[in-house]
Structures are given as C-alpha cells and as structure tokens.
Design a binder for these strands. Structure first.
Length: 617
RNA sequence: GCCACCGUAGCUCAGUCGGUGGAGCGCCACCUUGGUAAGGUGGAGGUCGCGGGUUCGAUUCCCGCCGGUGGCUCCA
C-alpha cells in the first residue's frame, strides 16, 4: 500500500464521472472538509493482509500532526502494482471502519474521476509519503539518483573496545558503561526525556552566570559578571593551550559576502542556517565557524612544504547558527556562541594523522582541566570505510588512548567533507548528548578554497586540513560543568566548579562587626597572592552568611572572630569536606597547587558582599 | 519550522467560575552583634508577557504575536 499524506487546511472534491463499471454508488457528489489529514491511497496486491499495519501508520501520522479528522482518498496513481478494484474497495472500507472508532473519518468515493482542491499547510510533516508492506515483501529496485545519494549515506554503527574489536551496537554489554549506552541511544534513535526544565538552566540563573535575553533573538544570551569571568578564563585557557601547541593566532571578519564563489559552493552544501546581514544593497551572512576567514587567508598565503604542518587559531566570537527554535536550550544549543577554532594544514595523510592524534590528546587534557574526566564524556569516532581499511591500527590506537569502549560510525562512501572525525560528547542528566571537543580531517576544502602549498619539486599541491576545537563551544563547556555538578548533587556530592574557575575562591566571614577590620586585612593577604577573595560584611548571622556562601558554591569559607584574632590561625570550611583549623600559608599552598598553570582573573564583583547588586532574584 | 504546555512583584509560586490581586524569598527601615546552611518587626514594590476582539467592565473568555519548556524535525 502506498499513502501520500497531506495535512490540509481544507480539501474539496467533486465526483465527476464513473471511471469504471464497479464504481461505488454515491448520493452526494461534492464534499468539503476543513483541518484534516488527507490520505491519498493506492491499494496494492495483497494489501488485505496489512490493514492493521496501515491503520497504525495512519494513526501515527494523525497523532504527529494532531488531527482528529481523516479523509481517505482512493488514489491509484501512486503505484503500478494495483490490487483489483473489489479488493481495493474492501481494504478502504476496512480502514474506514477501524479508524472510525477513534477518528472522524471520511472516504472519497471509489471508482470516480474527481476534481479536487487542497490546501496543504506546508509545515515539515504536512507532506509525507509512506509505503506499507507485509513481512518478507521486498521493495522494487529503482536506482534513481536520489536513491544512490541515499545509499552513500548508509551508515554502520559499532562499539569499538580498546582491543580493536568492533561490536554490534545492539549486542554490546553496556553494564559498566551506562553513559555510553545513553549516548548510543541518543545518536541512533534519539531519546525521550521527561518534561522538566534542564537543570543547567536553573543553575546558570541561580548562580548568576548567564540568562536569557528577551530583548535579543532567541539563543543570544546575557552573561552576568560571574559568567563573563568564567567564559573569559575558559577562553584564555584554551588560547594558551593552542598557542603552546604551536598555533598562530589570527582574527577574521564575522560576516562574508553571499556571492563569494568559494563560500557560495560551501553554503550550498547545507541548508540555510545563517543569520543574514543587509548592508545597503549587499547581503552578507554571519559566520557559523571561523573556517571562512581562515581559509580565505590561507588561500592568499604562499606556503612551502617546509612550513607544514601550520596551524592557525582564532576564537570565533561569535559564531552564529540560526538553529531552529525548538532546538535551542539554555547553554547547550545557542544561536550565538564562542568557539575556539584551529585549522591545521598537513602535507599528507601521515602528517594529518599525527596531528590528529596530538590534538585528540590535547582535547583530553583540556576537558580534564575543566573537571571533565574520562567517563564524564563519551567518545565518538566516525570515518569512511576506505579510511578504516587503510588505517585500522591508527583508529585502534585512538581508542587505546581513552582505554574504554567508544562509539564508531562508518560510512560506505564519504558524503561529508571529512574522512575521519572524533568528538567528545557530554551526556547530561536528561540523557541528551552534546559534542564538546572535536577534530576532523578535511579532504575537500583545500581544493574548494584554492589553498595550496609547494612540494619538494616546486609543484602546487592541496594540503589536508584539520578542523579542531579542543574544547567545543565555551558556553557548552559551562553547560557541561553545570550538568555534571547537578548530577553530583543528586548523588549527594556537593556541586562545585574547578577552583580556578570559581568566581569567589575564598570568602571571609567576620563573626561580628568588630572583626570586619581583621577580615579585610586577611582579605588583602589573599588578594596579594592573586586569590579571588571577598568579605561578607552584611549585618546577618554567621550561619546565614555561611548558608549564602554555600549556595554560591564557594570552595573555602573562612570565619574570623575572637578565636582567630587570638591564635592567628584560620578556621576554614572546605566545601564538602568539613571545617579545618589551619595557617594562612597552609591554605594558600593548597589553593596555589590547584591554580598552577591556569589563567587567573580578578574577582568579578566588588570585594565587599554588601556592595553587590542582585542580578537575578 | 511543526505539535503541546506554560508566562501573575526582582525570584519561586498561589488566586480571580469576568467586577484591576496574595504569600515566601529578595529590597528598604528599625531592632538584634551573632561561631559554621535562614534572628525579629515594619514598609515599599504589580499595565497579571505584548497587541487586538467580545463585554457596561478583561489579569480571567477568544484571536494573533513575543518569550520559555518538552516532543518531532534538525544539528556543516
């Protein structure tokens, strides 16, 4: 059976004349139905056996478009393998009677030439065709171009273990890797989550990190002082990392001309997801990654094989993707986001692979410094069959580096621009996955952009290009940290940020006003050492101030009163780890150990808590 | 983009079967000077998301829009 569904504002039809002897007798020739799901149906040989299945298909579609009125419209033109009219009418009547139990069902007369007018709603689900077959029946082979293109997309899913074995995703034993299981489900079938606000959204607001900005387009956030500081630190950290790795930092424009030939052919590969900027009569699109500017720069550069590999880096601030409304969530998916983007030109596949592996290791280090360890994220490695056949050991070596099973996706033929890609994916408390770090080996864009280098013989050649974001979007890193903290809290572990990212690292609480002076003196000692420290000078009880500090996830809370003034020691409440009496130097040593090698920034808010506005509630 | 639900004080929410509203937190003032997760009293604060419609009268009912969330689709 073949069905063409149209979700219609209305359909009108009129039976004109009988098309066959066995046409139904009818009393009313003209009908009109509003707000209906119209099913144009060709009944094929043997369909009597699959009436139930067809009913379910129709119900399924009705549910998706949320209609309770169904019009069954006999339509022979969808198939060249029609059932005899008597059988067809019988099947249609059965459909009608079964569906009538739950829906308002109308059936257009069978065996008539009819005129009709239909108004299709035009949303993505409003036009849909289905072919329904019984078990064991095979579709007729028709090798259209579209089908061939579809075939290229044939993808194979596996789980690869560190010993290099490819396991069927359905047979793999996930007992020790529940998050991998969730990730695999998310990738292959999508997940169904219960209805609730994502935990990180509540946290980003409560902690005054980021918030929605109704005055802008959706997916463009505001960042409060604490959030801005965290973002800046993350950016500085990644930047330091890639510069140490050997990248050259550049800056390129955020908007590009629609008509530029290289850009045009790149854009045409993808559905329109750009922000458009009109400047006078010219049309520009906002970049969705830093590729464009860097590729155009490399196009104009003169490069020798002796220079390779060369790496250029830019913090794409912002990258813009006009994602669909329904896809935007908190900090997980945005329309404007900050993405560290590094491109490496490699002479040949060997060099590309060597770089790929180093960047993979760098990405692991980067995530670790954000407090995301192996096991907090799931690895996906994707490649073409060709690449796999020629580089099995290389791929296995990547899996060995993380020493845990990873999701593998393999395509028969290349239909993206890359032959190899990995991502580190964070799986959140709602079982949604989001890609963080990624590296890809691009075999297509050097040619598209005319990026070349001169080889030993002075011949122009196209390099391979690696795309690398060691951390993924900065906002998404914060999302992952917040979600991890939330999952910790659910397990009874106090949620916290890595010390180097905590907006306040040490809070000093004077027991009463007369110790405020001591508290401020103590604060200055910590300030001198570059620690983000503040004093809660508000007229509140000690326990109240402790409570507020805990709610801010402050790692070290120092209470100062009579005792401390006399002894010169500090009473320190260590987050999640009780209260300890220690020397200032001792505490400083612990803090400095955590901070070594990380960028630092001053306190994002006034040092006296009483001087701070509330940005939210 | 589609479907569904939601939008009341800065925040979290209650309420009005159509007659312009309330609590807790926060804020302000006063009292309290405190020892590791909420000290007390009082006060100010609202175009009930925005725009139309119905009505003598709309925060409440209807339509449209904006924003948020979930699902679908999507995710270079």
């Amino acid at each position: 059976m073949r069905i063409l569904f149209i979700h219609a504002d209305y359909i009108e039809y009129e039976a004109k004349q009988k098309a066959m002897q066995s046409a139904e007798d009818i009393d009313k020739k003209k009908e009109r139905y509003d707000e209906a799901l119209v099913a144009f149906i060709s009944v094929e040989e043997g369909d009597t056996a699959i009436v139930d299945k067809s009913v379910n298909e129709i119900k399924d579609v009705s549910k998706k478009v949320n209609v309770d009125r169904i019009v069954l419209y006999p339509y022979a033109h969808l198939s060249s393998n029609l059932a005899p009219p008597s059988e067809a009418l019988d099947v249609l009547r059965k459909l009608e009677s079964v569906l009538s139990k739950e829906y308002e069902v109308h059936r257009a007369p069978f065996g008539w030439y009819k005129s009709f007018v239909i108004s299709c709603k035009g949303h993505p689900l409003s036009e849909l065709s289905k072919e329904i077959r019984g078990e064991g029946e095979k579709p007729k082979e028709e090798e259209s171009d579209a089908l061939k293109a579809e075939k290229k997309k044939v993808t194979y899913w596996y789980v690869m273990t560190p010993d290099g074995t490819l396991h069927d995703v359905n047979d793999f034993n996930y007992t020790d890797y529940p998050a991998l299981k969730k990730f695999v489900e998310y990738e292959i079938s999508g997940t169904r989550a219960v209805r609730e606000i994502p935990p990180h959204v509540e946290l980003m607001q409560k902690l005054e990190i980021a918030d929605y900005e109704p005055g802008s387009d959706s997916g463009n956030m505001r960042y409060y002082p604490k959030g801005k500081m965290m973002k800046a630190l993350i950016e500085e950290y990644v930047e330091k990392k890639v510069l140490e790795y050997g990248a050259m930092q550049v800056e390129t424009p955020i908007m590009y001309n629609y008509e530029h030939p290289s850009l045009k052919s790149y854009l045409n590969r993808f559905p329109a997801r750009q922000y458009i900027v009109l400047s006078g009569r010219d049309k520009y699109f906002l970049r969705f990654a830093a590729c464009f500017g860097q590729f155009l720069m490399m196009h104009d550069a003169t490069i020798s094989y002796r220079h390779l590999p060369i790496r250029i880096y830019e913090l794409a601030k912002y990258a813009f993707r006009r994602e669909q409304k329904g896809e935007l969530v908190g900090l997980r998916r945005l329309r404007a986001f900050t993405m560290p983007d590094m491109h490496t030109l490699a002479m040949d596949m060997e060099q590309a692979k060597a770089e790929f592996k180093k960047q993979y290791e760098m990405a692991m280090e980067v995530l670790r410094d954000f407090g995301l360890e192996l096991g907090d994220y799931e690895v996906a490695i994707r490649f073409t069959r060709d690449f796999y056949e020629n580089n099995k050991d290389f791929i296995v070596s990547l899996v060995k580096l993380v020493n845990r099973p990873v999701l593998v996706q393999m395509w028969d033929e290349r239909f993206f621009y890359f032959v190899l890609k990995f991502e580190f994916n964070f799986v959140d408390s709602m079982n949604k996955a989001a890609a963080l770090s990624t590296v890809q080996i691009d075999v297509e864009n050097a040619e598209r952009y005319g990026i070349t280098y001169y080889d030993e013989n002075g011949e122009k050649r196209f390099p391979y290009i690696l795309h690398c974001s060691p951390s993924g979007a900065v906002e998404r890193v914060i999302y992952a940290m917040l979600e991890k903290a939330h999952m910790n809290a659910q397990r009874g572990v106090k949620p916290a940020f890595p010390l180097w990212l905590a907006p306040t690292q040490v809070r000093i609480i004077p027991v009463k006003d007369e110790f405020l002076g001591c508290a401020v003196q103590e604060m200055e000692q910590f300030q001198k050492e570059g620690v983000r420290v503040d004093v809660d000078d508000r007229d509140l009880s000690v326990s109240r101030k402790i409570r507020d500090a805990e709610k801010e996830w402050i790692p070290y809370i120092v209470v100062i009163g009579e005792k401390e003034k006399k002894s010169g020691k500090l009473t320190v409440r260590i987050r999640g780890n009780g209260v300890k009496v220690m020397d200032r130097e001792e505490l400083l040593a612990v803090i400095k150990e955590h901070l070594s090698g990380k960028p630092s920034r001053p306190l994002p808010l006034p040092p006296l808590v009483s001087m701070r506005p509330k940005f939210r509630g």
